[in-house]
Computed example of a mutant assay.
Amino acid sequence: MELGSLVNLETLENFSTEHGSVRDLQGMTRLKALSISFNGKGCTMETLSSSLSGLSHLETLTIYDDYKLYAPTNDEEGFFLDCMNLKQLKLSIYMPRLPDAQRFPSYLTSITLSGCCLEEDPMQILEKLLHLYEVSLLNKSFCGKRMVCSGGGFPQLHKLELSGLLDLEEWIVEEGSMPLLHTLTIRNCRKLKELPDGLRFITSLEELDMNTHTLEFWKKLSRGGEEYYKVQHIPLLNII
C-alpha cells in the first residue's frame, strides 16, 4: 500500500511494516494516533523509530507484533522515540532490553508493555520517567524474578497494573517510591511470594485489586493475618 499522499491524516490504525513503507509515515505530520503491526520484515526497529521522529503531533502510539517474529540483533540500536508530544505508548513486541529513559519522550504519561520478555527489571528505567501517570506490565512483559521500585521513583504515578508476570517472585518497594499511587492491580503473578513491605508507606493508595492463587497468601493479607499491616490503610481491598 502506498499511503504517502495522506498528509492530512490524523489517525492511522494497523499500519503494517510488511505491506507498507515506513517512509510514508514521515509525511503524515498531522498524525495524532498511530498503531503499527511490526514484525521486522524489511524494516528494523531503528528504521521505524527514525521514521516516527518527525511526527511532532503524535500523542498515542501502539506497536505490536502478534506473532513475536521480531528478534533484535546485538548491534542494533533499537527503539527510540523523538515525538515530543507523545503521551500514550503501548508496546507488544519481543524486546529483551528496555531502552534507556533518555530514549523515551519526556512527557509520556501512560505506558503498556506486553509480551516483551524483558530480562532486566523495567522499573529501574520507567521510574525515571517523571510524568508517568499509568503503567501496565502485562503478559510476560518482564521475565525476571526480582523487581525494585526505588525511593523517589515514579513521582506522578497513579495507576499500576502487574498482570501475567509468571516468573516474578520478589517485588521491593522502597520508602518514597510512588508517593501518589492510587490504584494497584496484581493479577496472575503466581510466583510472587508476598506483597512489598513498602506498600504501607504509600498513604495515597485507595484501591488494591489482587488474586493471590493460594489460601496461605490470602490468609496473610486478610484482617488479622501476619501481613495485613501492609494493606490495612487501603480503603478498598479486593483480594481473592
Rank of each mutant, 00 (worst) to 15 (best):
T214Y: 05
M147Y: 10
H213V: 02
C149I: 10
K220R: 14
S114G: 05
S50A: 09
P179F: 12
C189E: 07
T73A: 14
T73W: 10
V135M: 05
E207F: 10
R103M: 13
L180Q: 13
S16H: 11
E13R: 14
K140D: 15
L98V: 09
Q26A: 05
V231K: 00
F38Q: 02
N14R: 14
R187D: 15
E206A: 01
E18M: 00
E227V: 03
G40L: 06
G78T: 06
L98T: 06
G151E: 10
K219T: 13
S222C: 08
D75Y: 12
S21E: 08
L9H: 12
L86G: 04
P122H: 04
K219Q: 13
N238M: 11
G152D: 13
T185M: 11
N85G: 06
L157A: 01
E134C: 02
I63M: 03
L166I: 01
W218T: 00
P99C: 04
L81V: 10
G151T: 14
K32E: 15
Y70E: 09
L132S: 03
S222Q: 10
D167V: 00
H158W: 09
L184Y: 10
K87A: 10
Y229A: 00
G151C: 09
E18N: 07
P196S: 07
E227K: 06
N14T: 11
